[in-house]
Amino acid sequence: MATEAQGEEGGLVFHPMDQFIVKPLFGDGPVGLFTITNVTLWMAITVVAVIALMVLGTSGRATIPGRMQSIGELAYGFIYKMVEDVAGKDAVAFFPYIMTLFMFIVFANFLGLVPMSFTTTSHFAVTVLLALLVFVTVTVVGFVKNGAAFLGLFWVSSAPLALRPVLAVIEIISYFVRPVSHSIRLAGNLMAGHAVIKVFAGFAAIAAVSPLSVVAITAMYGLEVLVSFIQAYVFTILTCVYLKDALHPSH
């Protein structure tokens, strides 16, 4: 997150979106399907971090856990309890899947906070794929487990009969808006925070404002640390909520 403002033409020039540029790590070629880019690099670091915590950290299998193992077990217990409480006991089969989503998002978010890093989860390409994965999984699971009864999700049987078609339309729309809000929430939060930090950093070029700017960056950074975790949590818990709808579609 280098300072962006340059004194060209005498005014401040902000490029808050430049930090999200995808570019090849080696050379200047076009970004193709298999090109190794900064996305690759930071996703690889995410994978390494997840492995370090969940595999290397727990390699001791200690009955009395050390620091790393404690964190790993904490994450495990946190998500396991969430799946069990929110989605129900029969959703435990999906626990590794949800755990994968959570670990990836939380590590990608936190790694994105490392200065000069690239935030993979701030890209719609990433979050839309994640949200679509959840959406498709939930829909498929819903139809496989309940058959046509899954459509009962849209037919609110507790409402008066005359209202039901209207409600069905609303329910269907809200069902299909789910992946949109699910993905945009995550990417938007991350992007907003990083862009705002960048804009504040741009103001640091003015000597009179720079102390204020540094304070503002620090405050935003603290907020972003919070947001990073909360967004991962929210993404995961919403996945659990959707999964609950798929497993128990009755309202």
Binding site: V22, V31, G32, L33, F34, T35, T37, V39, T40, M43, A44, T46, V47, F104, T120, H123, A125, V126, L129, L130
Partner: peptide, 12 residues
């Protein structure tokens, strides 16, 4: 850039 990101995300 989408295909690249989607591919690497899938791998990840």
């Amino acid at each position: 850039w989408w295909p690249n990101q989607i591919f690497w995300l899938t791998v990840t």
